[in-house]
Design a protein around this nucleic acid. Sequence first.
DNA 1: CTGTATCCTTCTAGATACTG
DNA 2: CAGTATCTAGAAGGATACAG
Lengths: 115, 115
Amino acid sequence: MKRHIYNCQAGCPVESTLQIISGKWKAVILYHFMKESICHFGELQRSIKDCSRRMLAIQLKELESDGVIEKKIYPVTPPKTDYKLTEFGETLIPVIQSMEKWGNYYNQRVDENIK
Amino acid sequence: MKRHIYNCQAGCPVESTLQIISGKWKAVILYHFMKESICHFGELQRSIKDCSRRMLAIQLKELESDGVIEKKIYPVTPPKTDYKLTEFGETLIPVIQSMEKWGNYYNQRVDENIK
DNA sequence: CTGTATCCTTCTAGATACTG
DNA sequence: CAGTATCTAGAAGGATACAG
């Protein structure tokens, strides 16, 4: 699974952060985890309408392999899976929160046509 | 100039933020603006070694057209250009700071091999 | 429901050469 | 120095079909 490569040894901590959260939908996915601690595949799919099933699976897999989220599979029919942030993943919440906050500011700004 | 499209009407403020800062090098570029208020093209190029001249120009142009940065061209030979954050661009600083902070945490964690 | 595999088109981004 | 233009290989990502 390829992804953007950042040379984190360059001394730019922002690159390290991007290494983990720069996937096209990762920050959005993490935002949902922030709002709801346990998430399911279908739920996320419905919430993030522009992200295809394929992309959602890829992004979740990368987040899982980076230790940001973990999943629990219930061996039932139909299949059910719980996803949640790991303790490590929770440390990203402030980053997502600051993005949420700025996004709200920006949306309001656009609404008011200040720009 | 194409880029990721996020449906910001979806009610996810994080998507609005990504709309502005999700370019491959934008957050890194903004990090440099945060550290040094006036930046030059060549300076940024040297600082962000893995970003090609072409990519740097594209990212700067997008940031400029989004009103995040502004540039001032000195009609001298050889050419010289100053880039700096606009007032609007400065509102992004807390976002970049939270990414910086997490990146430092992450780098330290990796160093200590806690993971 | 929760994925995976494959095909196929579109997009990205490096290399290189050129310009004011 | 500070870009722009073009070409191209490779990567990303949608559509679709299939699987447990």
